[in-house]
Design a protein around this nucleic acid. Sequence first.
DNA 1: GCGACAG
DNA 2: ATCTTGTCGC
Length: 224
Amino acid sequence: MDLSDISINEAKEIQSRLSQKLVIGGKPDKINNVAGVDVAYINKENIALCVVVIFSYPALELLSVNYNHDTVTYPYIPGLLYLREGPIILKAFENIKIQPDIVIFDGHGIAHPRRFGLASHIGLNLNLPAIGCAKSFLYGSYEEPAKKKGSSSTLYDEYNKPAGVVLRSRENVKPVFISPGHLVGIDESVEIVMNCLARYRIPEPLRFADIEVNRYKKKLLMNF
DNA sequence: GCGACAG
DNA sequence: ATCTTGTCGC
């Protein structure tokens, strides 16, 4: 059975079931590098592009960049991002040369309706520590964090249990939503993301992955 | 039934 | 995510 044949209800059941296997808490003993993953699309050609970058940690020097693309097989459905982005991301991880100590994803971890967002799904699948760093809200309740950089507020699930943190990654900008995906805790996720911040809203690994995936996209577009 | 809704 | 020009601000 292909991923593209999975029904929405099946996918949701799988998420709820696999969510039980997640290990949330702590952090890797030693973090020497941090990976960032971003995906872009060429809708007209039905192509998904994925870039995985790896930075040294905490120095944040670029260690490697990996480019991949393939045809997309699933539409975007809120809460089921994995079905659309999972295949190209997993393919990308087959090609990277350096073993990442932890990975930051453009999306949520356990701050998700079934506690199993993209970062959790990929993290569990690859048995890698994973953090979700989303640019917008998906699930939970929270108070607006203060305007100052580093201010944060807890994201709670429907049982009032913490699922993540809303973090002001820069002065006076829209906050980002941080939640652990797998093999890391909430506070540790925030700590690591904070250490990956330079002078922008988005942590460096994700920001650079975004820049590179769009450059890659432009390059591919010239061949059409 | 009516909104909300990662990328 | 993507479609799109100029424009306000640090």
